[in-house]
Amino acid sequence: MMNAFLAPIQQWLGPVFPLLWTLLKIVLILVPLMLSVAYLTFWERKVLGWMHVRIGPNRVGPWGLLQPIADGLKLFFKEVILPKVADRELYFVGPVLAIAPALAMWAVIPFSDGWVLANIDAGVLYLLAVGSIGVYGIIIAGWASNSKYAFLGAMRSSAQMISYEVAMGLALISVLMVSSSLNLSAIVHGQAHGYFAAQGIGFLSWNWLPLLPVFAVYLISGVAELNRAPFDVVEGESEIVAGHMVEYSGMSFAMFFLAEYANMILVAAMVSVFFLGGWLSPVGFLPGGFFWLAVKISAVLFFFLWIRATFPRYRYDQIMRLGWKVFVPLTLVWILVVGVWMMSPLTIWK
């Protein structure tokens, strides 16, 4: 039906059609994403408020629902300040480089069966590669601001992100082994089979259960990779004011903000796809679909907000210790365990 509808348009546009069609799909992903980012900030303030026994934002619009719009407008109309000693070009390249990977990574996330912008074979590698570029935005911003606090924040952040990327990459190796594919849709499909899935309780067949330690490592490393509480020494309000973005104002600050929240949703989506069965339904009698992915992403996002309200900030050396001395060895051992398990007669992956 879709093809019959599209065919005349395709004929009319000719060779430009693939470009426009892809652009349209990108817009269809990014607009809801940006709206989700706006309302995630609102939801975060509300949840934190409730956890602190406060009310949270409730003044703008009904139940405070227009608060993120008002915040956006405020940031939009604020002056963008350029410090006198800043590196003029790189100061503005920083925020762009922070937000671009956060958006580009959405290209390979499957929203439902076949609903993916680029169904590439090396999807996981693409995520790892583009994810590793995100650190440039922060380093460049920290250096170009020409300020001690910003530079310290950038140093902390890049060391932390590089360390936890190692743990995240190693955690994904176990996932690749059990699904024997680098394609994200294939990884989700691989979780639809198994003993429990045949019994109609599919959520026990998802990767999180057989790969439980790796799931925990990936989830916690995700929080560290996002530089969020309790690993938010990058911003460390009490020590270095706000880290790499202390000199930024107006829209250039808003770009960092958008990048952080887009990355949050992205990490939640990756956790859902790799470990929580993506768009699959948890029980046999309900159909799978985008709804379930949205539910899982929301649950993981709530977890991120929850731990922000619960845990005190880690000390920097302990963050590094956790990453290198706990998570990396744990994932390495689990790769071995999964390898032996897959080759043994007790294997649950065929």
């Binding site: 590698l125 790892l128 590669a129 583009v130 994810g131 590793s132 570029i133 650190v135 590089i162 990327e165």
Partner: peptide
Amino acid sequence: LIMVYVGA
């Protein structure tokens, strides 16, 4: 190339 050289 991106992961090793650009990213690390």
